[in-house]
Amino acid sequence: MTTTSEPIVADGIVVVDKPAGLTSHTVVARVRRLAGTRKVGHAGTLDPMATGVLVVGVNRATRLLGHLQLADKSYDATLLLGSTTTTDDAEGSLVTTASPEAVAAVSDEAIAVAVEDYRGEISQIPSKVSAIKVDGKRAYERVRAGEEIELKARSVTISRYDVLAVRRVEQGLEIDISVDCSSGTYIRALARDLGAQLGVGGHLTALRRTRVGGFDLSAAHTLEALGDKFVLLPIAEVAAETFPRFDADADQEVAIRTGRPLAGLKLTEGETAMFAPDGTFLALYAPHGPLAKPSAVFVG
């Protein structure tokens, strides 16, 4: 791991603990200033109200983001049963409110039974204020413009859905949950659908992403901390920990640097990180019949 308090020009990954109230785009802008480079991008957008893990690439590592195994994610969240909103979360306007009697009739056992229906592979309709594009325009943009839209259900996987606590409060039922899920899962939709199934409505009131792929909160840093000491996971370190490794000889290095196919290599399925004799991360290669061909080359 490389640390520095000065502007950097290195290639690597920064794991940010995003605060509430900032867009992912704003976080990227902050990291650009801290890193001293314009070449910064992020993987896996977080809504402004959400906090937690945002994986940010710096310089050539921006191109690595699309190759990292970032499909599996983990979240801690709080749902409020008893009311619905226009956005399926606390930032929207109130739409419906269930009677106190209806909310009181929802038992802890009923919640546990209902949650079972959302474990495993499920069909989920995303929130209408999601970033999904409808005819080339973001769904939330169409909704905010007053349009009525219908989004299609999609298949997602919930590998873990734990109910941590249930609290009976004045506003309804607060439920703390912890979820492991596939990319494309909307936790707001889980809140909406659980409330609908229990007959009282529901929405999301707090969301914290605790993991994206192999990056979790233990590796994350607040923007304030990064301002004091910029912490970068070097691209070579990330590649070596994420992909199978192949150490090239001098002749192979020359070929890899120019993206030429290589014969006679027995690479595993998927992508392999190719390294030079001096430890420089060169490229990602994958098997194509008798040859190994580049998926992406990271050196000039």
Rank of each mutant, 00 (worst) to 15 (best):
V156A: 01
A153C: 01
G172W: 02
Q171N: 11
R160T: 09
D162S: 11
V156L: 00
I177A: 05
E148K: 14
T157W: 10
R168E: 03
V163G: 01
L164A: 12
Y161D: 04
Q171T: 14
A153K: 07
L151K: 08
E174N: 07
K152H: 13
R154H: 00
S159Q: 10
K152Q: 15
V156D: 00
E147V: 05
T157D: 14
D162N: 10
I177S: 02
D162R: 13
L164D: 14
Y161K: 05
D176L: 07
I158Y: 08
I175F: 02
V163A: 02
R167D: 15
G172E: 02
R167Y: 12
D162Y: 11
Y161V: 10
S159H: 05
I149W: 03
I175L: 06
V156T: 02
V169M: 05
S159T: 13
V166N: 01
L151M: 06
E148Y: 08
R167E: 15
I158R: 07
R167P: 04
I158F: 13
S155I: 12
E174Q: 10
E174G: 02
L173S: 03
I177H: 06
L173D: 02
E147I: 06
I158G: 03
S159W: 11
T157V: 14
V156R: 00
V163W: 08
E174D: 11
E150H: 11
G146T: 09
E148H: 11
G172H: 05
V156I: 12
T157K: 15
R160H: 12
R160Q: 13
V156W: 03
V169F: 07
R168W: 04
I149T: 02
D176W: 09
E174R: 11
E174T: 05
Q171K: 15
R154K: 07
L164E: 15
D176A: 13
Q171I: 09
L173M: 10
D176M: 07
A153E: 06
E170T: 13
L151C: 04
